[in-house]
Design a protein around this nucleic acid. Sequence first.
DNA 1: AATGCTCTCAACCGCGGCATT
DNA 2: AAATGCCGCGGTTGAGAGCAT
Length: 395
Amino acid sequence: MGRAPCCDKANVKKGPWSPEEDAKLKAYIEQNGTGGNWIALPQKIGLKRCGKSCRLRWLNYLRPNIKHGGFSEEEDNIICSLYLSIGSRWSIIAAQLPGRTDNDIKNYWNTRLKKKLLGKQRKEQAAAAAANQAAAARRANNNNNNNNVIKPEIIKREASSTTTAFDHNILLPGGFMMSHQRVPYWPELPAVTAMPVVNNNNNNNHYYNVSDQLKDQEAAASIKNFLIKLGGRFSETESGTTSTTTTTSTPDFQYPLDQSYQTAASFDHQWPIMGQYEVEASGVGPTSMDHGLEKLQAELSQLIYSNPAQEILLDGSDHEGFYGSMEMVKVAGSSSTGSGTSTTTNSVDSGISSLVNINYPSMVPDYGNYQQPHDHHHHQDSAFGYVFKSNVINS
DNA sequence: AATGCTCTCAACCGCGGCATT
DNA sequence: AAATGCCGCGGTTGAGAGCAT
């Protein structure tokens, strides 16, 4: 047996709202509030609308301080970051962007941002492929000139140029790599990172009304510390506290605009918020972080293959930055740290470039044999049960 | 100017979660 | 414990604006 309809479908108007309807609804809510019952509200004010329709109209259009269109670069960054972190949980993402509605963000992502990323990625790939080809030619030339004896200084230079790009990077579940030095695939998004979520419950934004706020509070201190490390700052009233749930009318956290903050130390941290979203072993079952990545990958792939004329080079030629020295290790116990507790090692077969590319050849730099990682920097999130292990090659 | 196509975004739909009875 | 009702969310649709031919 199905659910009873929330309203009499035959007697409700559907479609665009008239200015009169808007005025009625707005005036009533501003004077009386919603009364906690959207279903009963339209009858009270004589609107032939479904209660859900009224709610949507109010939340997405009529309520104060709504911003429409004109997303800034910073907002783009936040949306992308959060999408990578938590997937299509638009209400939570909207809670981080005062004045934006989940519907707006969802539309913006689906119609523009996704395509924008794809377009930029194409350009990047073409440029990177060309650069790699040139580099390979140089190497071949050098090898020939020296009777196949590779000069130590060449090895050192190349190894150095590669490994420094990896230093302290973090491979996130799903293969997305956080990099404080290099975020090559979203060139317009200076430092896209999977961003923790702050319950910025302000500006009449009721969206992030998660019932397990108490659980969140446990994570709050770490989140805040992390965000501060990233260069953000909280309002004066919030500084020194551990609460991220605020009722202040101004944003209690300001995302860092200067993203050059990302030092190695920045990632020596915990990401407890991810535990909130049931992060599991990478590639095993749906994880929240994986969700965003995998979904994005699928979406972008579909975009590509549904349009063969724009097919993207799949030769894996520019993947250097995402392979080789990174591993993610699932640790046996959620509280264990350090090496020696690994139970599963996931080879890195997809980087951020997997946002577009489906299958990669196993990427081993042609000088890879000369690099033997011997120092592992472990970044573990106890909530994840993961160790983020970056293999830093000492020079 | 007319037509067709693409894109945007407001609005709808159905489902899951939660509270209440 | 089960039934009921409401809320909130994410996915999807379709009207209309804008653009290309």
